[in-house]
């Protein structure tokens, strides 16, 4: 979406300048143009750029406290250099990649399927829609607590059900074989509705006449799904995917309560490692370097993903 809208702006601007013939309306336009964008710019400047600059500066320093005062020591790129040797950070990057790609892929498929199913039925749409939207209403902290109990080795409902059908109980969160998968399951439960919401919104704005035409041509349901719905929805799918991927990359609350990154490093995720280094260990310099490296990493990922989708979009 982000890339396609810039295309739009680029093509729109030259005509616009030509159309605004006289100077008077141009000035008035400019006034409104600046005024309408100003609040967003101000918020971004004050509450995002400033703290991010702060992070960048921090990442080049060591901070010590004595007599209630801080002393900053410039250490250059030392923190960035030591990232390479941080085995916890490496483990967390890997886990987060696995976590977010697996979780988001499943969420996209399920969300799309649910959106298709919901839009294809006549009665009860409202009910299903409401039910599927429920999980995003629940604070992550509650999700963590409730699933922790459901996963519990000794008291959890999962092991009770497994026991009822003769399966050995498993320690879903405490055994490194299952822990990451368990977290992924929770995330799928929590965030599939989000994909569902965005995909359904896009599905319902698709032009009906195309379908009517294809009905006349005798296209099967699968054909119209494959050749009409999916291509038309590709931009929405891409946006939803990227959007969810970013959110998944930030996963924190759930992991914090469910496993605390363990057992071992099996569920250590990036924002948790950052939190640990930055706050728990109180190493803001090193933690900032880790944050900034992570942004760079994700930014790269997003650029690659949107480049790929754009190429696909332009060839089709």
């Amino acid at each position: 979406m982000y890339l396609s809208s810039t295309e739009n702006a680029r093509s729109a601007s030259p005509e616009g300048l030509v159309e605004n013939g006289s100077l008077q309306p141009l000035n008035r336009d400019r006034f409104w143009r600046n005024l309408t964008l100003a609040p967003a710019i101000l918020l971004f400047l004050a509450l995002t750029i400033l703290p991010m600059v702060n992070l960048a500066v921090l990442s080049l320093h060591d901070i010590d406290w004595a007599q209630g005062l801080s002393s900053w020591t410039y250490v250059g790129l030392k923190h960035y250099a030591s990232l390479a040797a941080d085995s916890l950070f490496k483990a967390s990057i890997l886990n987060t990649l696995v976590f977010s790609t697996v979780a988001v892929s499943v969420q996209m498929v399920l969300g799309f399927a649910l959106a298709l199913l919901t839009s294809s039925i006549v009665h009860g749409r409202l009910f299903y829609r409401t039910v599927f939207l429920l999980p995003i209403l629940v604070p992550g902290i509650i999700i963590g607590a409730i699933w922790k109990l459901m996963f519990s080795f000794d008291f959890g409902v999962l092991n009770q059900m497994a026991g009822a059908i003769g399966i050995m109980p498993r320690d879903w969160l405490g055994d490194a074989t299952y822990s990451l998968a368990s977290i992924i399951v929770v995330d799928i439960w929590h965030w599939t509705p989000f994909c569902f919401l965005l995909l359904l919104a896009s599905l319902e704005t698709l032009p009906q006449d195309v379908y009517e035409a294809s009905d006349i041509d005798g296209a099967t349901r699968w054909q119209s799904l494959w050749y009409i719905t999916i291509p038309l929805m590709l931009p929405a799918i891409a946006v939803t995917f990227v959007f969810r991927l970013i959110l998944a990359f930030k996963v924190f609350d759930e992991v914090y309560l469910l496993t605390g990154g363990g057992p071992g490093t099996s569920t250590e995720v990036v924002s948790f490692t950052i939190f640990r280094r930055f706050f728990t260990e109180d190493r803001p310099g090193y933690g900032s370097a880790m944050s900034i490296t992570t942004f760079a990493f994700i930014a790269l990922m997003i650029i690659v993903v949107s480049a790929v989708t754009r190429r696909k979009g332009s060839t089709s």
Partner: peptide
């Protein structure tokens, strides 16, 4: 001990005693 000692948190430990 517990079959999954590595996965036991303080809350788990207390729950086992409480139950």
């Amino acid at each position: 001990g517990h079959p999954s000692t590595a996965g036991q948190t303080q809350a788990n430990v207390l729950q086992n005693m409480a139950t």
